[in-house]
């Protein structure tokens, strides 16, 4: 069971967004895709998910090339993207097949899991940003995907809600051992959550470095070891680029 990305590139009409990106995941791993804004993280994730199928290269899921939407994958977007006309419960059961009662009881279980028991009959307009994103998480989990793709899922939330949902994601991962592909521009988030980081850089985005985060769980957000990783990554992402820019400007 694994997800492989092999030489994936994507070109929009006017520009190339990502170039030759390859990596593997192992079962039950949390992989972070980290990079500055505009380096092609979303583009890469959309290619993996099959929402966008006009890329070159291969996405290989459990050994077979997959160029389309696949039910083994679940996607959590940056915005909750709930259907405003459906109750919270019906939003969660949106992607389920089968009888209404069965779908609803299934959905209720996952709502409980994300800590929203009692909000089943609410409508999205009644939810705070954090609650709405919890609903989106439940909606993605309810179909039991083997791979969970997340595109900056917490970046629109305030710092405290963000930390709680990061811990929720870890709880879910512990319980289901889902393979998680997490796109983020938040270095601390990446270090707190991920086993391995793929650093993207440049425009078009290329894979710059792959870093294994060697830190036992549960991790502490203030860990000295993680701070060293952070130092290193910031250097890779910003200090070196600004150094070359300055160098370039003087010549």
């Amino acid at each position: 069971m694994s997800l492989q990305v092999r030489n994936v590139s994507k070109e929009f009409e006017t520009r190339k967004a990502i170039s030759n990106i390859s990596f593997n995941t192992e079962s039950g791993e949390i992989i972070g895709i980290l990079g500055t804004s505009g380096c092609g993280k979303s583009t890469l994730l959309r290619a993996v998910s099959g929402l966008d199928s006009s890329y070159t290269g291969d996405v290989i899921i459990d050994g077979e090339v997959c160029n389309d939407i696949d039910e083994r994958l679940g996607f959590i977007f940056q915005q909750p993207r709930l259907m405003p006309w459906l109750s919270v419960l019906d939003n969660v059961s949106f992607g389920l097949k089968g009888g209404k009662e069965e779908r609803r009881s299934n959905a209720a279980r996952y709502l409980d899991l994300v800590g929203l028991k009692g909000n089943e009959q609410d409508y999205p307009k009644q939810l705070s940003g954090g609650m709405a994103q919890r609903v989106a998480i439940a909606r993605a989990l309810v179909t039991s995907p083997q791979y969970l793709l997340l595109d900056e899922p917490f970046s629109a939330l305030d710092a405290f809600t963000k930390m709680k949902l990061q811990d929720l994601l870890l709880d879910i991962w512990e319980a289901y051992k889902t393979t998680i592909l997490l796109v983020t521009h938040d270095v601390e988030e990446a270090l707190y959550l991920c086993d391995r980081l793929i650093i993207l850089k440049g425009q078009p985005g290329r894979k710059d470095e792959e870093i294994v985060i060697d830190e036992p769980r549960p991790r502490s957000r203030g860990s000295v070891n993680l701070a060293e990783y952070k130092e290193h990554i910031l250097e890779r992402l910003e200090l070196t680029t600004s150094a070359t820019e300055i160098g370039g400007a003087t010549t």
């Binding site: 009644q126 954090g130 709880d171």
Partner: peptide, 13 residues
């Protein structure tokens, strides 16, 4: 896992 959420409550009444 915490079952309670401390985010804003639904806008009722």
């Amino acid at each position: 896992m915490a079952k309670q959420h401390t985010e804003a409550l639904p806008l009722k009444g």
